[in-house]
Simulated assay, not measured.
Amino acid sequence: MKNFYLLTFSLLTIISLTACQSAYAQNAKTLKDLKGINILYFNPEVFPDIEEIKDPTYSAFYAAVSEKNHHFRNYKMLRVDSYIPFDSVDAESIMEFCRNNNAQFAIVPKVKYFKVGFGKYIFSNQVIVSLKMFDSAGKMVAQTDYDTFKKNARILGSAENSIKIGTEGAMNNMAKDFSKSKRFF
């Protein structure tokens, strides 16, 4: 009788361990899928369209994005040196870029400069950073913007700092929208 109980117990132990191991393997596979999220960032559309300010704008924008993404180790930023117009985004091109770069999301940014002041006296360089996020199917998931003058009331500072603050603020707004709606990941 003891052998029967011992045999039954050992069979049940083996079955439960096998079931736990397969469940763990399935969970590990889904966690691995979540860790490999790639997000494409396109070059921002710059307004006004002046060649001299595009390169500094790109470098300040990507510096802010990489600093912000440094905190999220599960996400990988992919920079695309291509321009997509912010107001007329083509879903087919977004799908193609995501497919070719193995990305789940794409962000199309816009940086709009404006000067605060009276006439020829200018007090500061301010920006509005706008972001549109698309999924790999080309469907817009979220849109947000951040105005450095209205939100931070910055009067002094460089344009590069304004871009960094605006980019981080827009990314924070997007994260808040996702946490409220719980539709992200």
Score class of each variant (00 low, 15 high):
residue 89 V to A: 04
residue 111 V to F: 07
residue 127 V to G: 00
residue 106 A to K: 04
residue 110 K to Q: 14
residue 88 S to Y: 03
residue 110 K to N: 09
residue 119 G to T: 13
residue 118 F to E: 12
residue 117 G to K: 06
residue 89 V to T: 03
residue 130 S to C: 07
residue 118 F to K: 12
residue 95 M to S: 07
residue 92 E to Q: 09
residue 107 I to S: 04
residue 87 D to N: 12
residue 98 C to I: 05
residue 113 Y to V: 04
residue 100 N to T: 14
residue 90 D to E: 11
residue 97 F to M: 08
residue 99 R to G: 01
residue 111 V to E: 00
residue 89 V to Q: 01
residue 91 A to Y: 10
residue 108 V to G: 08
residue 94 I to G: 00
residue 115 K to A: 14
residue 120 K to V: 15
residue 105 F to M: 04
residue 100 N to C: 03
residue 94 I to E: 01
residue 128 I to A: 03
residue 108 V to S: 04
residue 109 P to D: 08
residue 114 F to W: 09
residue 88 S to T: 12
residue 125 N to G: 08
residue 97 F to D: 01
residue 108 V to E: 02
residue 127 V to D: 01
residue 130 S to V: 04
residue 92 E to R: 11
residue 99 R to V: 07
residue 128 I to Y: 02
residue 128 I to C: 05
residue 89 V to F: 05
residue 91 A to S: 15
residue 116 V to L: 14
residue 112 K to A: 15
residue 127 V to A: 02
residue 102 N to D: 15
residue 97 F to E: 02
residue 129 V to E: 06
residue 130 S to G: 08
residue 101 N to V: 09
residue 123 F to L: 15
residue 118 F to L: 14
residue 92 E to G: 02
residue 100 N to A: 10
residue 126 Q to F: 01
residue 123 F to E: 14
residue 114 F to K: 01
residue 107 I to E: 05
residue 112 K to F: 09
residue 119 G to E: 13
residue 125 N to C: 10
residue 120 K to P: 10
residue 114 F to I: 03
residue 129 V to G: 00
residue 113 Y to H: 05
residue 119 G to D: 12
residue 121 Y to I: 15
residue 91 A to C: 04
residue 103 A to Y: 03
residue 104 Q to M: 05
residue 120 K to L: 15
residue 111 V to L: 06
residue 92 E to P: 00
residue 126 Q to T: 10
residue 115 K to T: 08
residue 93 S to E: 09
residue 110 K to S: 15
residue 98 C to V: 07
residue 110 K to Y: 07
residue 96 E to Q: 15
residue 95 M to A: 06
residue 112 K to I: 13
residue 98 C to H: 04
residue 94 I to S: 00
residue 102 N to S: 11
residue 124 S to N: 09
residue 93 S to F: 02
residue 129 V to D: 02
residue 99 R to H: 11
residue 100 N to L: 10
residue 104 Q to T: 12
residue 129 V to C: 10
residue 111 V to R: 06
residue 128 I to G: 00
residue 90 D to C: 04
residue 112 K to H: 11
residue 115 K to Y: 12
residue 89 V to E: 00
residue 127 V to P: 00
residue 99 R to P: 00
residue 114 F to S: 03
residue 125 N to Y: 09
residue 124 S to A: 11
residue 120 K to E: 13
residue 90 D to A: 13
residue 92 E to Y: 03
residue 88 S to N: 14
residue 116 V to H: 11
residue 123 F to A: 13
residue 93 S to N: 09
residue 130 S to P: 03
residue 106 A to E: 01
residue 92 E to L: 03
residue 119 G to W: 07
residue 89 V to P: 00
residue 101 N to W: 09
residue 90 D to F: 06
residue 93 S to Y: 04
residue 110 K to A: 13
residue 119 G to P: 05
residue 121 Y to T: 15
residue 98 C to S: 15
